[in-house]
Design a protein around this nucleic acid. Sequence first.
DNA 1: GCTATGGTCGCCCTCTGCTGGGAACAT
DNA 2: AATGTTCCCAGCAGAGGGCGACCATAGC
Length: 574
Amino acid sequence: MALQQTGEGGGLGKELLPDHWQQNRNMQGSRQNPEVFTKIKDLETINGDKGSNVFWRHDDKDVMGMVSTVERRQTFSYEVNTALSAPLFKRQEPFLTPAEENSSRKRILSLPVVSFEDEEEAHLSEHYCLALRQDRMDFQLLGMELQHFGMNLEPDIHHSHLRMLDLLPQAAEAQQGEEDHPELTNLFPQDFQDAAEMHLGEEAYELHEVEMELIGNAPAVPDVLENENSPTARKTNQRVDAVAKSSLPVHGYGEASSEGRRRKKKAPRMRRNQMKAQGQSTTHQCRLCEFTTANLSDFNCHMKSHTIERPHKCHLCSKGFRTITLLRNHIYGHTGFRPHKCKDCDMAFITRGELMRHQRYKHTHEKPFKCSMCPYSCVETSKMKRHIRSHTGERPYLCCFCSYASRDTYKLKRHMRTHSGEKPYECYICLARFTQSSTMKTHIVQKHTENVPKLQCPKCNATIARKSDLRVHLRKLHSYVDAGMKCRYCDAIFHERYPLIQHQRDHRDEKKFRCDHCSYICKQNSHHEHSEKCRQKQRKVKALETGRKGRKKGETEKEAVSSKTTFAPWKVNS
DNA sequence: GCTATGGTCGCCCTCTGCTGGGAACAT
DNA sequence: AATGTTCCCAGCAGAGGGCGACCATAGC
Ligand SMILES: [Zn+2]
Ligand SMILES: [Zn+2]
Ligand SMILES: [Zn+2]
Ligand SMILES: [Zn+2]
Ligand SMILES: [Zn+2]
């Protein structure tokens, strides 16, 4: 594939499960039941973000909140063999039926495992669990998502261990029989079970009735994905304002994504309620789009926009237009004729509006839209809308394969490459492939470009290639640590790691041995050799001196020529 | 009815920055 | 040899810039 990413305009839809997906499938099947689960993505781990969003249940309602002690969140993603897996999900069968009818569709099983560290109960920290212990059942840290046709099944877990196996009829049998049924532990991918410390549950799992209803009405994801331009697809990719207005707190990535997952369930219900309300009031809703109004004439006016003819056909692509001007502009697009030339550069545009916008971007830098919360300003309202989301934390675009939610469509699209394995960018030198162009660019600069200046650490003489790595270096070695760090050889205390290491190195490089006869100082290795040479040399000198002046009073020759070195650990002058 | 215009949506790009795995190096 | 530390690196997300295209509408 070429370096640039051409024809990507199909969006999330057409290419979501392309060839490279097939490659990824073969990457690593689960060890014990590969025919059922095919790993489609290596273990995905989100580490240590302070604060993570979890659900728990209170008075039979889903409640979302923050847990500040989540240590990491791992997600296993598998493609599920539709034919083989059906019996495993017997209880969910009603919703899986469409899958049996169309086996070409993908079914993705996401198995998140959240491990956490509770500050108050530190003993839980090493317990990587799927659900908390009985006495901590107010936290639900597990969601099993089986996503198929947009269905999102989340077990309602109130117990000490994962109840996933209880979904299986075999598990129910096992409960009556032995507690540990070896065959059953093979029903899920081994690495998932390992991480989850999966156990067979004690009670049969029950889907919540409300959830089942919502699940049944969830949008059909594969359909959506087939054609981005279909109304369904647009709907899914569009923002859902109701969620943004939710009173639930949003604190960042994890939260928003969890909230997004929640929305998947809630949205259909709201739509139903909406329709019901409309039936009772005078609200008019367009059946062809989302337009809603209370005014009948407005409604009729709107409906014209759906029925209006498009008599002006393009002879090049047979597309129809309502007016001759629109057709003309369209044909300009084909021919490349751009009547509106920029006076300040070589650019030219079909319409004056495009030219005006260009001039704002490139020449006048006029930015009429100002953010009320920060100094940001921009040329277009859509940019301001997008920007505002970074203040509100709103993430309207949901990944249908994982809990990721993004603030704009592009990031979601880019994110989808992590699921598909697509790497559209290729290094023209070594043919290495990359998911993002900027990564490839960095690669070329760092690996194939000569004389790239490295960055000098301002606090020591380290040179580091990347800015962010320098930041890590500064953080790890030069940041102030409140709790002082003690030298392992002496009592010196340091609040910065770098001087501590230097100091300890000094200890190690210490010249422990000095010659009594000369200024020679050395480490242990070579001092014997020196001593011998020095002794002989000194002996000659002494002999000469003794011959001239005689020996000092009370001084023996032995003392005078002593070659003994003084052992002086850590100090030259002892 | 036609045109110009401003508003809007959507796509794609770049720049930026953090992260964690692992190689390389140090102890 | 084993263990610890540092840095290289690809992966991936955040934010914003730029433009093509479409549409509704005001004004002729
Ligand atoms: Zn210009
Ligand atoms: Zn702002
Ligand atoms: Zn995802
Ligand atoms: Zn390369
Ligand atoms: Zn010391």
